[in-house]
Nucleic acid binder design. Structure first.
Lengths: 329, 329
DNA sequence: ACGGGCCATAATTTTTTGATATGCCCTAGA
DNA sequence: TCTAGGGCATATCAAAAAATTATGGCCCGT
């Protein structure tokens, strides 16, 4: 039954060399063997794959298509073996992770440290990117894993919630002698934002999209004075009292501690943005991907537990022996 | 050398049945044969794939990963054969095409007609969708081909320009006795749009994005009174003299002919939006996809030549014997 | 017309794959 | 604890598949 990888390899060679004999020479086997393989495949498929002539062979339309498929299958198979072979346990190769600067600040150092320590043969590549680009970069295979703030449903991506970050209203620093790094005592209802002039990231930015979604939900029309696509600048602007802004709490803890700004908690609803770890579904995860996913999950938990990443863990990561599940034996 | 599809099949059976003997029974072969296959694969990969016990076998971590890869490869191979087998030429199976309503109006009837006539066994599925969703639907494999107006670079998609449609300024119908269906005699420079109150689709809409890009390029700040996400409503609004709007010329030819609106040509720059035919790259095109691509291309050319689709062909389709290249023999 | 390159077919050998028989180990149950 | 049964491993042998060698026919260019 069914066609064999060997036949595929042979077929590719026949097409690329444009001749059965030459392919035979290249493959170090006899020419009739190839003729037979070809014949069998054609019989199996019920299609003529190669047009024979006295000057060699050329692919028919079906043959051309089958060539593309063949290469695809061979590539997949090669990759499958490569991914599983080797030190049996140790993730190797390289893996690219797309992250926004804000998250990378906390996460990257630990990831790099742990990868170097545990999987020295894995090349880690951190791609600093806007979360908006993550889906297309995943699709384009520029990155293997990425962080986003929005789930784009029905897009062939698999999301895993990591952390919920609170969104807070940022304004000029407190006048009095507040404790640093805390919220103002009063809260503001989301609906009351209508009265407050805001500076926000532009609607390209997914933070803005999250905010707009809450605004819609609360039926508020936000009073946005200007679009500013830079978190540090937004903080500076808010600090100068030129307007308020809305940012995730982790983005402003430093500025808050240094009393450059003040923060007010928003309620009804209490807005959060969720950080998702994201990868292509439909393709089997490689060893490196599985390992990195687990590492990112556990590192996230560490950071949250230590208070380095002020947020709420989305799914309390079930404490399997963490890496052991990934590293065979 | 290298692992064989047969081994993959056997491996999948062993994992899914959780037992070599049971897999053997299921596959109608003897148990030792499977043991040997497994042994060879493990030797080849240098990894233990299955943990043997007196109660059967379970996949190791590496085995689980290899299982995913195996299924993937088998699936790809099955698909490859299916795509090429059969009547040798005739595209079969089903194919889904994502199209915005505006383009579908002209294109769909002919596509359906031609597909039924030439490839009766091909099931054509037209998915009416906003072009903004096309990329994610392609990635999610909801559709196989789609139309868009924007190339999202670096996203793993392959674009092919079809038609450039002119963007025109739409206003209330002409007072006098103009010839119907033509442009006003005067033109308007893009920069002068600043003075004209506009109704445009919201920035979700890719038409809006195209327009904004031109505005940015011409350094104009558009005076947008309202966002209206419906072409017919925009036409109605513009016709009532409540404001001008900018639409692609093909969207308004009917309204123009019926004198419900007037159109003014924009210049400096002369704005166009390009209609792209789009599919996933990285995966081999199936027979049906190649055939449909060719059909869409030639139908587009027909429509443009006949004036049914008022626009400029992007790449004058090189006139290979059209369908012949697709249908073997 | 002829020589050379190229593919197809046939007969034969080699390699691979599967089957049968059997042994070992682990576990469950008496 | 001893034993029976289920489950995997190994060895040997048989069958099937693949490759080789040998040969023939076709087409093209000289």
């Amino acid at each position: 039954m069914s066609i064999d990888v060997r036949s595929l390899r042979y077929f590719v060679a026949m097409v690329t060399t444009g001749s059965i004999s030459r392919a035979a020479a290249e493959l170090h086997i006899a020419q009739p063997a190839l003729s037979l393989h070809l014949k069998r495949m054609e019989a199996e498929l019920g299609v003529k794959l190669l047009e024979r002539s006295s000057r060699g062979v050329v692919a028919t339309a079906a043959g051309q298509r089958f060539l593309a498929h063949s290469r695809d299958v061979l590539e997949k198979l090669r990759f499958a073996c490569e991914d599983v072979r080797e030190g049996a346990s140790e993730p190797v190769g390289s893996i690219a992770i797309g992250m926004p600067q804000s998250i990378g600040m906390a996460l990257t150092p630990r990831l790099v440290r742990d990868v170097i320590r545990r999987w020295p043969r894995l090349h880690l590549q951190i791609v600093e990117t806007s979360t908006g680009h993550v889906p297309s970069q995943l699709v384009g295979r520029t990155i293997d894993l990425g962080m986003t703030f929005l789930r784009d449903k029905s897009s062939g991506l698999r999301y895993r919630g990591l952390v919920e970050e609170e969104l807070v209203l940022i304004g000029p620093p407190p006048a009095g002698r507040h404790k640093t790094g805390t919220f103002e005592s009063r809260n503001i209802r989301f609906a009351d934002l209508a009265d407050i002039p805001l500076m926000l990231p532009s609607s390209q930015n997914s933070l803005r999209q999250v905010i707009e979604r809450y605004a819609q939900q609360a039926q508020v029309r936000l009073n946005v004075l200007a679009d500013v696509d830079s978190i540090p600048q937004l903080i500076a602007i808010a600090g100068d009292g030129l307007g308020h802004t809305i940012l995730s709490y982790p983005s402003v803890v430093d500025a808050l501690a240094e009393r450059r700004v003040s923060a007010v908690r928003l309620v009804q609803p209490r807005p959060v943005r969720t950080v998702y770890l994201c990868r292509l579904e439909n393709i089997p995860a490689t060893s490196a991907m599985t390992a990195m996913e687990a590492l990112i999950l556990s590192t996230t938990q560490e950071l949250v537990d230590e208070g380095e990443w002020p947020g709420r863990l989305v799914s309390p990561i079930r404490q399997r022996p963490s890496m052991k599940a990934v590293a065979t034996r």
